[in-house]
């Protein structure tokens, strides 16, 4: 399993990370090391073992459909870097 620098760039773009050429180089190596280590798990025989999606031995946790107020508009917006008209204000999204 070998991850290419192009894949590192792709993942970085999806995560909105801006990497320098040195970082790309470094992370390509590091990610490969991690993947190589994880690949050791492939050696284990998992025949007949169901895939694990959760490590907790729990299922069907739910609540009743009840309404509780929590925050006021003022409280909700208290930490917003910018707010207007009762809303969070963000840079305009340009749909190209």
């Amino acid at each position: 399993m070998k991850i290419s620098m192009a894949e590192v760039e792709h993942v970085a773009r999806l995560a909105r990370l801006e990497l320098t050429p040195e970082e790309k180089e470094k992370f390509t190596h590091q990610l490969n090391d991690i993947l190589e280590f994880a690949a050791k798990l492939q050696a284990i025989d998992t025949e007949g073992v169901p895939p694990t999606s959760h490590v907790l031995n729990l299922k069907n946790v739910w609540r009743e459909d009840e309404v509780h107020d929590w925050l006021t508009q003022e409280e909700a917006l208290a930490n917003a870097p910018a707010a207007a008209d009762g809303c969070f204000q963000v840079p305009r999204i340009i749909e190209e």
Partner: peptide, 20 residues
């Protein structure tokens, strides 16, 4: 009546950011 993962109201048309 309430949202899928929390107890905020699902009411339509309330003033913005009051059911959060």
């Amino acid at each position: 009546k309430s949202k899928i993962f929390c107890s905020c109201s699902t009411e339509f048309g309330a003033p913005p950011n009051t059911h959060v």
